[in-house]
Nucleic acid binder design. Structure first.
Lengths: 205, 205
DNA sequence: CGTACTTTTGAATCGCATCAAATCTGGTGG
DNA sequence: CCACCAGATTTGATGCGATTCAAAAGTACG
């Protein structure tokens, strides 16, 4: 069923032209649900309203690598002009999403220059976010990566946890044991506070 | 001086509309030359024809983190709509570049839908490339990262080296000593060949 | 020829992955 | 409500691989 525009997030309402807003379809994804799988032809573009959806790829040793982790925003937007998906998307926790037909999205970009500019702006933000993640992953110590995450993705050093520390560990590219130890150690040193569902850096420099 | 269009790379000629091609300016950057620095207002968009230009940021301990490494293509394209650069760009080796005015680039995107689509395609490729780099950096062993680099950025497992192994080490996020040892070890095991200026995986599986 | 940089090897140390196991948690069905 | 289960969290012990510091040898360039 089509979602009425005023149910959609403000960001989406500002980004999309009216003819696309009207064909958005709200969906709910259960825990572990697959939005799409690698190799399939892209038919819909997905936007995460609430929850946590990851783009992942299976390495050659069978390990799962998380390529993107979205709690709010588009997932797999790079597949707009692709013939097929390059990775899988699945919901880590029950999530609310919106999907819109790729075909109409492409048409809107080609016919609406202002929308195209806004879409480019969204891609530019994504590129910068990915560069930040590369910077983060090039840090060697778990603590450095965690602090970097809190400083760049959190607000005022505070980051809300929707799916537990284990999924954060995967995003940081470290074992969950190492992250648990790191968090415990930083709490003991008073560098970090841990409220229910969020991590927060204390301001000591 | 404006570069005559037929001196520009084919990729650029196919991407840019005529009015932008005519305002491209060819430039040569000496080794270590700064194309732009963080904080400044973007005035030109740069394209690397030949050589090696890096986007880098200085971490809080003063270490240099390479965010992008371009031997061919745009550098800092995410700053198209930004008020200021978020990082520095400098030439690692003497490089040929093209610059075009950001203002006219923005105007072209808003007035030429097909060009906007092509620009989006370029950004999509960049997003995918960055996701690959994140995947690579989340590997733990140096050898895994090097193999991943050769398989994804090389052609048939062969990668041409323009600026020595040390800059590769920085891109892989490892110390240069570790990379030298890794290369030597893999050569000894017959997993890798090292011609003048290129690394090549041998096909043993 | 000297200077700056890359490449190379060595040795010591550190941090994390890994394996193991115990505890805690939320959710399920009896 | 309680027993139970799957998954998350937590702590411990061990080993590996990379960082780091150090130093020497090779190389390009003015």
């Amino acid at each position: 069923m089509p979602a009425t525009p005023h149910h959609l997030p403000v960001e989406l309402q500002r980004l999309l032209p009216a003819e696309l807003l009207s064909v958005c379809e709200a969906q709910h994804q259960g825990r572990g649900a697959r939005l799409f799988v690698a190799g399939r032809q892209p038919e819909y573009m997905y936007y995460v309203i609430q929850g946590e959806v990851v783009l992942e790829r299976t390495g050659r040793q069978g390990e799962t690598v998380i390529l993107q982790r979205t709690r709010q925003g588009f997932i797999g937007e790079a597949s707009l002009q692709s013939e097929r998906y390059h990775c899988d998307a699945s919901a880590l926790v029950p999530s609310d999403t919106v999907r819109l037909p790729v075909r109409q999205l492409r048409a809107a970009i080609e016919s609406d220059p202002l929308f195209a500019s806004r879409w480019i702006g969204m891609l530019n933000r994504e590129v910068r976010r990915l560069r930040l993640q590369c910077e983060r992953l090039s840090l060697h110590r778990v603590q450095d990566r965690l602090v970097h995450l809190l400083e760049t993705e959190g607000r005022e050093g505070r980051l809300t946890l929707d799916a537990g520390l284990k999924s954060i560990a995967a995003e940081l590219g470290v074992s969950h044991e190492a992250l648990y130890r790191c968090v415990a150690g930083m709490e003991k040193q008073g560098l970090l506070r841990r409220d229910a569902g969020s991590l927060c850096l204390t301001d000591r420099r």
